[in-house]
Amino acid sequence: MITETAPPEVQTGKGKRRLDENVLRNLGLVGVLVLLVIIGIITRPDLYSDPEWVKDNIFTILQQASAIGVVAVGMTFVIIGGGIDLSVGAIIALAGVWATTLATQSYGAAGMIFCALLVGLAVGLVNGVLISYGKLVPFIATLAMMVAARGLAAQISGKQTQVSTNTTINDIATTRPLGIPLLVWILALVVAIGWIVLNRTTFGRRTVAIGGNPEAARLAGINVKWQTLLLYGLSGLCCGIAAIMLTSQGTSAQAAMANLYELDAIAAAIIGGTLLSGGRGTIIGTLFGVLVFATITNLFAINNLSTEVQNMVKGGIIVAAVLIQQFRYRSLTQLLKR
């Protein structure tokens, strides 16, 4: 057939190009972070003149980013694998509420953690089964789960705030091994494991393959359905971890917790360079995305500004990031077409 055009075989060393592109995007996000800090210094020079405050503030930002960061890592896997998970906030609420019922609390800290992780994983796997084997569109399946899981959480908690009386759990948010908050350690660990799994394991390779071209993956002998199922399980597990972190931070759990986390997690992944259509994304980019949002929140807080303005700025940043991404992608493909 004569419909296809052969791209010219020039420009050696193009393999490095994509790596460069990722590094470039991450550098861009670092630039945004620096800019936000500079704005902070200009608007509140009084605070920034105190090094102790600066150190504490950095930890505040990181702690604020910790739970959403863990969720966003799971979300990044799901999106790279060609899906979306709208139910993460609801799963956190369900896992948090389930882990703080009087019955669960009677099993102690280990029982509560085990419960949260198990509930998160199980709900994630239900999503996965509906999508892989029930052939539901991910958007619909997880939208339904978002509604249902919050409903179940409200049912279990009787719409009450459930206070955690377990000191081990509550201490997670306050202990500082080696001077760094435990929540930040957890985030660092999840990010590190996420990076290794995505870049260095067969699980990560399959994820990129099924998101990049599911038909090619299938015809290469990869079990696309099974891998999809596992990805939603992974996302659910991350929600279970985040549920414990949030419960500890608030020393309580309720059905309304982690509200709109799905949107924050998706937004963080997207501005971090994850392609919404799947097949491409980085864990580090997502981490930077989370940090940018947390820093903005912090910036508004230290200036005593309203959350309304803050949300408008967040929306603007999402649009700007995606526009930049599209522009890059387009110019790159145009370059190759030439």
Partner: peptide, 10 residues
């Protein structure tokens, strides 16, 4: 392109 390759992958 649609059935065999991951075009962005090496």
């Amino acid at each position: 392109k649609s059935q065999a390759l991951l075009l962005d992958e090496p």
